[in-house]
């Protein structure tokens, strides 16, 4: 279970972009979070993946409340999440080859021995040809780079996937291919998914359940305003 409890978060304490939002994703469930651009849903995704410390509220991962964020989160808890962001160009270290990019989490967690076996395997899953694996990010297209970023997110076999506008920059075919790769991994591993985006047609087709950002915020604000109005 991934529980986000009354989260308030942002980059300036006086003006949080996420106010008192709660959301729960059951194990193996796929939830699509729909919202317009700039509404704060990406911030919520980063908080959920323990990458941004909320001002208030709690994230509970498989019954274990998160106590630290970013480097302060225990490694086992951080690596329970695989994250994929909107812009592959910014999500890839420009100096690493695609193989190094995908293998980086294995090396960072002392499992360099698995690289030989896991990387080609994952490259196949996300549809990356082996001839591309030796290239650096500027030598491949956005779609190819995003495939590598997805492979990197899957390499540690996370229990939770957070996809923040994963396909917003991509064409229809690459979008369908990446979604298919995510679903293949989820079917085999039972991982849960929080997919954040603005494309209703896509998220409704992809996810078992979709949630409107407006509803999440509205519910919380309604609850907060009632006592104030009294």
């Amino acid at each position: 279970m991934l529980e986000l409890r009354s989260l308030t978060a942002g980059y300036d304490r006086r003006a949080p972009v996420v106010r008192d939002v709660s959301l729960t994703v059951a194990p193996g469930e796929s939830v699509g979070l729909l919202g317009p651009s700039g509404c704060g849903k990406s911030t919520l995704a980063r908080v959920a993946a323990l990458l941004h410390q909320p001002d208030r509220g709690q994230v509970v991962v498989d019954g274990e409340p998160a106590r630290g964020w970013r480097h302060r989160a225990p490694r086992a808890q951080r690596t329970a999440f695989g994250v994929v962001f909107q812009q592959p160009r910014l999500s890839a270290d420009p100096r690493l080859t695609l193989t190094q990019l995908i293998a980086e989490p294995l090396r960072a967690t002392g499992r360099a021995a698995d690289v030989q076996e896991r990387v080609p395997d994952l490259a196949r899953t996300v549809g990356l040809g082996t001839d591309l694996l030796g290239r650096r990010p500027h030598e491949v297209s956005d779609g190819q780079l995003q495939r590598a970023c997805l492979a990197r997110a899957l390499v540690l076999r996370p229990r939770w996937l957070i996809c923040d506008e994963m396909t917003a920059m991509l064409d229809a075919s690459t979008t369908a291919a990446l979604v298919a790769a995510v679903e293949e991994y989820r079917a085999e591993s039972g991982a849960g998914l929080l997919a954040v985006g603005h494309d209703r047609v896509l998220l409704e087709r992809w996810c078992e359940r979709t949630v409107e950002w407006g509803e999440l915020v509205g519910a919380a604000q309604g609850a907060a305003e009632r006592p104030a109005a009294k």
Partner: peptide, 19 residues
């Protein structure tokens, strides 16, 4: 046709392979 069929409101299946 493959590109159009990859849309989520159509078949939502990717074209195999890469350009």
């Amino acid at each position: 046709r493959g590109l159009l069929n990859a849309l989520p409101d159509r078949e939502f299946t990717p074209i195999p392979g890469m350009p």
